[in-house]
Design a protein around this nucleic acid. Structure first.
Length: 390
DNA sequence: GAGCCGTGGCG
DNA sequence: TCGCCAAGGCT
């Protein structure tokens, strides 16, 4: 009993799917990739690990170097880990390299140097999950096992019109069941390669070439004009929004900067003194802002009454990977030259710097902070003076 | 079960 | 430039 029958209507295509895919693969599939035309499980395994989340063109040179340096599983198992990591350098996902090395050692020590033939045992080895195990077993040993990688998910979602993000356990279970139900009785290597080839070439993410596809008119997505929206894309997470008020305090030709802590965002860079709303709220209450500003200025060494005016400047949004930061700069005017000098003197410490135009140019500033500073200063050709708007 | 891992290509 | 994703697996 298979979950498929509960979720999908019987698709007349299912009966001939494998047959048509295998025929298409023979005619239009890829047959000359470096890891094809071999039954050597070691070579197949090595390619499958390298190809995890990595495109074919990227893998090819790495694969060649690895085979040259480590021609068999024993050579790899007996190599120092540093050598393995050095050859992997640049491929990314370095846990794959560590697992690769460990896996070679396990195969050598516990399986007599020969990769197991059944997918279940293969999947117990480091770095080999369900899909990779199936691919190795199918290519090397003709095992009756289904793969489910990004290519297969895309093909199945489109051909069978499966809605929902394939990354969720529910849709993934559905797809595993469907993938296994479609397996042919023979020709597993050609079928498995066909799934990958179709997904990587015709049924590509960007512009599927439906006119050349063996499933053309039978494809649910194509028949309903949804090939561009299937598979359902990953739901976008709403990025947290942060609001920070920063102070632009000038004295003569100088602007006050504050050094960021070494850890965290912009660690070690020079930024503007900032006021983070205690609640992180979006709305600014002018009175409370003045209150906090006065407190902040006092902490910096200003005496009460120094702050003469507070002018909101053009805000900007900076996008980080984890959140969106809304910067709200406030131009702070200090009253009187003597107050400014006193403020400058008292706010001078290792965490603060009064920078002139040249100093701003030379300092390490986060780019949005530099934008704020640049917007404020007008560098006249002659003297490089900091000029404030009226 | 969600977060994380790296680099490169593409629209 | 920017977001998304690629022959997934591990914690």
């Amino acid at each position: 009993m298979n979950e498929l029958s509960n979720d999908l209507p019987a698709n007349p295509l299912a009966g001939t799917f494998a047959e048509r895919l295998i025929a298409w693969q023979a005619e239009h599939g890829r047959h000359d990739l470096p890891w094809q035309n071999t039954r050597d499980a070691y070579r197949i395994w090595l390619s499958e690990i390298m190809l995890q989340q990595t495109q074919v063109a990227t893998v090819i040179p790495y694969y060649a170097r690895f085979l040259e340096r480590f021609p068999d599983v024993a050579a790899l198992a007996n190599a120092p880990q540093d050598d393995v990591m050095a050859l992997w350098s640049g491929l990314g996902y370095y846990s794959r390299a560590r697992n690769l090395h460990r896996c070679a050692q396990v195969v050598l020590a516990e399986h007599g140097g020969r990769f197991p033939a059944d997918p279940e045992t293969l999947a117990t080895l480091p770095g080999i999950g369900r899909s990779t195990a199936a691919a190795i077993a199918a290519f090397a040993y003709d095992a009756h096992a289904a793969i489910l990688d990004g290519n297969v998910k895309r093909v199945l979602a489109r051909v069978f019109g499966i809605e929902g993000f394939p990354g969720t356990p529910k849709i993934e279970r559905e797809m595993w069941a469907l993938a296994e139900s479609l397996l042919p009785g023979s020709d597993l290597p050609a079928y498995t390669q066909g799934m990958m080839d179709l997904g990587a070439t015709l049924c590509a993410r960007g512009k599927p070439r439906c006119g050349e596809c063996p499933f053309d008119s039978d494809c649910v997505a194509h028949a309903t004009g949804r090939e561009r929206i299937l598979p359902t894309s990953k739901p976008k997470k709403v990025q947290p929004e942060r609001y920070v008020d920063v102070l632009v305090i000038c004295s003569g030709e100088h602007m006050l900067f504050e050094r960021r802590p070494d850890s965290g965002i912009w660690g070690g860079l020079w930024s503007l003194p900032e006021l983070t709303p205690p609640t992180g709220e979006r709305e600014v209450d002018d009175a409370s802002l003045r209150e906090r500003l006065t407190a902040h200025a006092a902490a910096l060494g200003a005496t009460q009454g120094t702050v003469q005016s507070l002018v909101p400047l053009q805000g900007l949004t900076h996008v980080f990977t984890h959140f969106r930061l809304h910067l709200r700069p406030w131009l702070v005017a200090l009253s009187g030259a003597s107050a400014q000098r006193a403020f400058a003197a008292r706010s001078s410490d290792s965490h603060h710097a009064w920078l002139d135009s040249a100093g701003i140019d030379a300092a390490g500033l986060p780019s949005p902070i530099r934008k704020i500073a640049d917007a404020l200063r007008v560098v006249s050709p002659g003297d490089g003076q900091l000029c404030l708007p009226a």
